[in-house]
C-alpha cells in the first residue's frame, strides 16, 4: 500500500517543479481523476489552470485535449464530426478534442447552454452520439473545466443540476510570494512540461483507478458518518436543497481516493472532512440570504457539528 502511496507522492513531487506552490490543487485534481470524476476550477485566468491540466496528462502518460469555450462554440466542435472524404467517397468521423484522456475545458460558462449540455452529457455517459452513431470515450477520461468568477457579462452560468456532475469544485488561488518570485526568476516552465517523461504509465494509472474503486474498504461506521453529513445538509437553516445521492457517492469515492493517497486501504473520517469544502458547496442550494456568505465556511461549520465515529 505504501508503495502506491509513493507513486502518488512521486507524481506530485515531479509536477510541483512546474507548478510551484500548487500542491493542494494538484492533489485535489488527482483525487478527482483517480476517483473517475471531473473537476471544476473556478478562478481568475493566468493562475496556472492549463499548466495543471497538462501536467497531470503528461505525468500520467495520457493524451491531452483543450476546448476553448466561446459563445459560438458548437457541440460538434467538442465531439467532432463526420466529414465527407472525396477519396473514399464516404463520411469519415473526425473525433473532436473530447476524445482525449484529460480534457481542459476553458471558461465553460462562456459556451452556450446547448454546447454545455452536450459536454456535460459526454461527462456523464462517457460516450458521445454523433449522427446516430455512438462513440465510446477513452476509459481514462477526465474533464478539467474552468470558469471565471468575476466576469459575468456574456456568460451562461452552469445550472446547479449540471454542477452536480463535477466531482469537485476548487480554486487555485494566487501562488505564494516565494513561488511567484521563482516563476519570475526562471520564467514559465510550460514548454518543458510538454516534454516531461510520464511518472507512471497509462496502465498503472488505470490500475490505480481500479484500486481506488475496489481496493479501499469503507466501514459501516464511515458510511453512517457520510449519511449523517448528507442528512445535515438536507436539514438545516442555510440550505434549501441538500446533497443528492450522487453527491453522497462522490463523497465516498473521493474519500476512497484520498485514503489511497494517504497510503491507506480504508477510509477514515478525515478523508471525508478534508474534502467536504470541495465536494459539497457547489451541489447544494443555499437560501438567498446566505448567498453572500462564504459557502465553504458554512459547510465546514455544519460538518463540525457531526460527531465522528471515533
Amino acid at each position: 500500500m505504501d508503495n502506491n502511496g509513493n507513486k502518488i507522492i512521486k507524481i506530485i513531487d515531479s509536477l510541483s517543479r512546474y507548478l510551484q506552490g500548487k500542491e493542494k490543487p494538484l492533489r485535489l485534481a488527482l483525487i478527482a481523476f483517480f476517483s473517475r470524476g471531473h473537476l471544476l476550477i473556478e478562478d481568475l485566468p493566468g493562475l496556472g489552470k492549463t499548466t495543471l491540466a497538462i501536467g497531470i496528462a503528461k505525468s500520467l502518460g495520457l493524451t491531452f485535449g483543450r476546448i476553448q469555450c466561446t459563445s459560438d462554440l458548437l457541440p460538434t466542435d467538442i465531439t467532432g464530426l463526420s466529414i465527407y472524404n472525396k477519396g473514399t467517397g464516404e463520411f469519415e468521423f473526425h473525433p473532436g478534442p473530447i476524445f482525449n484522456n484529460i480534457v481542459l475545458c476553458d471558461e465553460i460558462n462562456r459556451a452556450t447552454p446547448k454546447t454545455q449540455s452536450a459536454l456535460l452529457e459526454a461527462m456523464g455517459e462517457k460516450q458521445v452520439t454523433i449522427e446516430g452513431k455512438t462513440y465510446k470515450l477513452p476509459r481514462l477520461f477526465s474533464i478539467i473545466a474552468t470558469q471565471n468568477p468575476v466576469e459575468q457579462f456574456g456568460t451562461f452560468p452552469l445550472p446547479e443540476s449540471q454542477l452536480d456532475r463535477f466531482m469537485m469544485k476548487i480554486s487555485i488561488g494566487y501562488p505564494s510570494n516565494e513561488a511567484e518570485k521563482e516563476i519570475l526568476k526562471v520564467g514559465s516552465k510550460r514548454e518543458e512540461l510538454y516534454s516531461i517523461e510520464p511518472v507512471i504509465s497509462r496502465e498503472e494509472a488505470e490500475d490505480i483507478q481500479k484500486k481506488v474503486e475496489n481496493g479501499i474498504y469503507v466501514s459501516e461506521k464511515v458510511l453512517d458518518y457520510i449519511l449523517a453529513i448528507i442528512n445535515r445538509t438536507r436539514r438545516n437553516g442555510y440550505i434549501t436543497a441538500g446533497l443528492s445521492t450522487r453527491g453522497a457517492l462522490t463523497i465516498m469515492n473521493t474519500a476512497k481516493a484520498n485514503a489511497y493517497f494517504h497510503g491507506r486501504d480504508f477510509v477514515i473520517p478525515e478523508d471525508i472532512k478534508e474534502l467536504v469544502e470541495y465536494t459539497i458547496p457547489h451541489r447544494v442550494l443555499f437560501k438567498e440570504e446566505y448567498e453572500g456568505l462564504d459557502k465553504r465556511e458554512i459547510i465546514k461549520s455544519l460538518i463540525e457539528e457531526i460527531p465522528t465515529p471515533a
Binding site: I268, P269, E270, I303, I306, T308
Partner: peptide, 9 residues
C-alpha cells in the same frame, strides 16, 4: 478530542 474531530485530526 472534540466529538467532530477525527482521531488523526
Amino acid at each position: 478530542k472534540k466529538t467532530s474531530q477525527g482521531l488523526e485530526e
